[in-house]
């Protein structure tokens, strides 16, 4: 993803929204970025896109979210959009067991195409449909723990936990970047003069805001 200098924000993070078709990805996105929800939204063809700027620990972070088509056959295309993503929101539908079973497959997809450090949040969407629930919150939680993912149940319809899900992912990414910046500083201090084959980007913590970093990978 392109690094760029822009005064509107300190950081730009690319997030991908993935999961089976019909789980509510596009509605999660429209709820988060425009506070809108549509009962009969059309299926996503290829990829769509929206941004939202928010504050994370006093820094302005612009989230650039890529909403992808969920149908299996579109994966040949959507995986191309994983490039440069530092976060993923992996969505399933709590009323459809199969969409939860497929989470494993989506994780594989991420491992194959995305950066290995990508921060993943699993979201069990449509939590408002309690009477139709087919996946218990506990099962979701257990699976997430096993796979090392963050987890929340969300409802785009009721606007429940959507903001929080993104906020969590973005904060985690921010922390990783900060940690990397510190580690890089540390490494710079200990490694003596440069020229040993590794390039180290030094970011002074007091100046972190001007780094416009957009990626947590090294």
């Amino acid at each position: 993803m392109a690094h760029r200098v822009d005064h509107e924000y300190d950081y730009l993070f690319k997030i991908v929204l993935i999961g089976d078709s019909g789980v509510g990805k596009s509605n999660i996105l429209s709820r988060f970025t425009r506070n809108e929800f549509s009962l009969d939204s059309k299926s996503t063809i290829g990829v769509e896109f929206a941004t939202k700027t928010l504050q994370i620990e006093a820094k302005t972070v612009k989230a650039q979210i890529w909403d992808t088509a969920g149908q299996e056959r579109y994966r040949a295309i959507t995986s191309a959009y994983y490039r440069g993503a530092v976060g993923a929101l992996l969505v399933y539908d709590i009323t459809k067991k199969q969409t939860f079973d497929n989470v494993q497959r989506w994780l594989r997809e991420l491992r194959d195409h995305a950066d290995s450090n990508i921060v993943i949040m699993m979201a069990g969407n449509k939590s408002d449909l309690t009477h139709l629930r087919a996946v218990s919150e506990n099962d979701g939680q257990e699976f997430a723990e096993k796979e090392g993912l963050s987890f929340l149940e969300t409802s785009a319809l009721e606007s429940h936990n959507v903001e929080k899900a993104f906020q969590t992912v973005l904060t985690e990414i921010y922390h990783i970047i900060n940690k990397k910046a510190l580690a890089a500083q540390e490494a710079a201090r200990n490694s003596g003069p440069p020229g040993q084959g590794t390039t180290i980007h030094v970011v002074d913590s007091s100046d972190a805001g001007s780094s416009k970093s957009s990626c947590c990978s090294s």
């Binding site: 509605n27 009962l39 009323t95 199969q98 449909l129 139709l132 629930r133 087919a134």
Partner: peptide
């Protein structure tokens, strides 16, 4: 075959019009 719990579809909102 999957026997769906969401079958009656009522109130599901995101499903049925």
């Amino acid at each position: 075959p999957i026997v769906n719990p969401s079958s009656n579809g009522a109130n599901s909102g995101e499903e049925v019009k």
